[in-house]
Structures are given as structure tokens and as C-alpha cells.
Amino acid sequence: MSMKDEVVSRPAGQERETGSMMGGMGEQEQERGERPKRVGDRVFRYLTTTSGLVIVVAIVLIGFFLLIKAVPSLLADSTNFLTDWRFDTTGGKLAFGIRDMLVVTVLSSLLALVLAMPISLGIALFLTQYAPRSLARGFGYLVDLLAAVPSVVFGLWGVLVLGPAIEPVQRALNAGLGWFPLFSDGNVSLAGGGNIFTAGVVLAVMLLPIITSVTREVFRQTPVNQIEGALALGATKWEMVRTTVLPFGKSGFIAASMLGLGRALGETIAVLMILHTATSPSGFSFFDGGSTFASKIASAASEFSEPLPTGAFIAAGLVLFLLTFVVNAIARSIAKPKKEKA
């Protein structure tokens, strides 16, 4: 196998060796080039390294600035930041907590994930294993088309079209399964569907293309000899998928779902347009209203003027940042061992 093949066939994330190989080359070259002092090389090296550093610095700065802007407000907070559901920054006295925002954010994102994961898995299998080769490409574009729809349009559709349309379903769920906390009466009216349930469904639709595209790539990399081996042993198509494609792509699929979860946690405008504001605390029901971290911040954005009230929202933003940071780090650590094996 030529080196080119090796480089090309190596999946992303496995390039450390290539990197060190090339690095080694660079070193030799530098040693030789030491005397003439290739200025161009050194300038270029610094330039690219600085650009890489910009990204590292950006993340550090995001955490740092959000923190220093949030701390004064957190110190001035007259209630418990973690357990209070009110978010009152008006009238001079700060009393804000993130309980309800956390509940609404997590409930809507998890609902979206539960709905989107099996469907995305199905789509990825359909596109890579089941769909006729000639059509798979076109079908793939269709799913990608969903990703081309901006979230503000999803918000419009969710609140003006989908919400009213699935209101009867919500009423039925509420009436039939109301004894179960997740489906009990919420703190906003069911009319119009401005609740977590609708938001979760819309988020699920937004996650489909994200989870599908990553999962599809992983499934496509299933070793062909494993697939052919399974088929040669007399496995049916489903048995082949279950014994080769799914075990091979499992970690990639979970990592993709975590990436989707991170996206859902931070989704702003669609959720802001859909959810009705609530005046009482959340009861952990899908039929609650309220706001997520992101939608709360966006809804108050026009009133950012005084440092202390603004800091309260920045504190909420900091929590969201940490939440997505953790979710993405987990996604990465799940995806990584798989890549090393491949």
C-alpha cells in the first residue's frame, strides 16, 4: 500500500502519526535550513500557530469574561442561584435563580433527543444500507435540506403551524396520562401548544440532520469484509446490520447524539418564539411553559443596560456555556477511542 493510500484512507482523528511524521520532516528540514535561516518558514510557522492559538484564547476569554461579568451580580443575588425559580432583575434588588430555566432546558432537550435518536438511526441505516444506491445520494440531500432551514423559520413554523396542529395530541396525552408527572397539567394553558412538548418536537426536527449526517459517515465506514462475511454466513440484511454496522457505529452514533444534545441545549430563537411565559414554577411537566437559558437571555437582550441586571443574565449564560462544554467534551471522549481503533 502506498503512503498516499494510507493518508487518504485514514479517518479523521487518526492523523497523529501523519502529523508526527511530517513534523519529523519539518525538523530535519529546519536543521538543514538552520544556517541560511529561512525567514519565510519561521514567519509562516508563527502565523499559523498564532491562528491556532486564537481559538484556544477565544474559549478561555469566553469563560473568563462571562465569569467576571457574572460574579458581581451573583454576589448581589438575594436568593439561591441554583434553587430559586424566579428571575427578578428589576427594581434594584436582584433575586434570580436558574431552577426553572434548567428544568425547561433539560426537559425540552431530552425530549428532542429521545424523539430524534431512533429516527436519526433509522435514517442513517436507510441511507447507507437500505436505500438503492442510485437514490441514496438524492435522499441524503433531502435530509440535508432540513439543515438549511434557519432556526428562526423553525420557530415560526413551530409556533404558527405545528403547535396548533398537535394541540389535540397534547390534550389527549394530558387527559390519558395526566397521572404521570411528565404529562400532568402544566403551568401554562394547552391552547396553541406554547409548551415544552412543542418545543421538544421542533428541536427534534432540527436535530435530525445533525445526528444523521455524523452517524451516516460512521456507518459508511463499516469494513466491507465484515459486512460480506456476515452475509456469506447466511445472515439476513437485518442480522448483518445488527452484527456489523451497529456495533461498529455505536460510539459514533452516541457521540453524534451528544453533539445534537449540545445544539438543543443552546437553541435560542425557535424556543423563544414557541414557549409561553409562565408565572408559576415548573412542575416537571412537558406541558409547562417558561424559558430555557438561551431564550431567557435573548428575550431580555433589549434591556441590557445596567451592569448588575445584565450580569444576572450573563450568569445564566455562563451556566449554559458550562453545560454545553461538558456535553461536548463527553461527546468527544466517546467518539475518540473509536477513531483510534479504526
Binding site: I55, V56, A58, I59, L61, I62, F65, L66, L259, G262, R263, L265, G266, E267, T268, F293, A294, I297, A298, A301, F313, I314, G317, L320, F321, T324, F325, V327, N328, A329, A331, R332
Partner: peptide, 16 residues
């Protein structure tokens, strides 16, 4: 950090 940055929600980038 590139991975983390790609997961930063747009509202957090705006707040920053």
C-alpha cells in the same frame, strides 16, 4: 478547543 467552540451556543457567543 475547536470541538468545544463548535459546540458553543450562538447566544453564549453573543453574550461574550
Amino acid at each position: 478547543m475547536v470541538d468545544i467552540l463548535s459546540g458553543v451556543p450562538s447566544i453564549v457567543a453573543a453574550l461574550f
